[in-house]
């Protein structure tokens, strides 16, 4: 019920994200979602791609340091306040949100959130109790299918 996210080490300097994207382009890799977190001199790029395995192999060959992290992808209504209920529930159960980012699909009135939480098992339990849809890796293609 989790999604595989690829985290990549990038230096915080002009052109470094461009160079990375060029690698993806060269290998015809499609990014579904991305988020860049920065420290002073470096950043962690977090991406969801269409083919995680091939992308990992490719990035390692190209000399990037990267790893797979399991995250939760949830589907929410694309409307104001949609996040309040579930975030409150997570907070009430003392589950901490480490980071999160959002993406939209091509169709529907849905929005999607990637969540990294300190207690993934507990989080799943809370979310399922609320009736939140958790999108697993295989279902990703449906979201992006035309």
């Amino acid at each position: 019920m989790t999604t595989k996210q690829i985290s990549v080490f990038l230096e915080n300097k002009p052109g470094s994200l461009a160079a990375f994207c060029k690698v993806l382009e060269k290998h015809n890799i499609d990014m579904r979602a991305m988020c860049l977190a920065d420290a002073m001199d470096f950043g962690i790029l977090r991406i969801i791609v269409d083919d995680t395995f091939t992308t990992m192999t490719t990035l390692k060959d190209e000399g990037y340091v990267c790893q797979i992290t399991k995250v939760l992808t949830i589907e929410i209504e694309d409307k104001p306040g949609a996040l309040v209920g579930l975030l409150t529930a997570l907070g009430d159960e003392n589950v901490n949100l480490e980071y999160s980012y959002a993406f939209l699909s091509r169709k529907a009135d849905k929005a999607y959130m990637i969540l990294k939480l300190d207690n993934m098992a507990k989080a799943k339990e809370v979310l399922l109790k609320l009736g939140t849809r958790i999108v697993c890796q295989d279902e990703m293609e449906q979201i992006f299918g035309d």
Binding site: Q5, S7, F9, A39, F42, I44, V65, C66, Q67
Partner: peptide, 15 residues
Amino acid sequence: EMTPEMFSDEMSEIK
């Protein structure tokens, strides 16, 4: 140079 051993998905770990 960053190595897989030093890298983490979590900023606080790397820091």
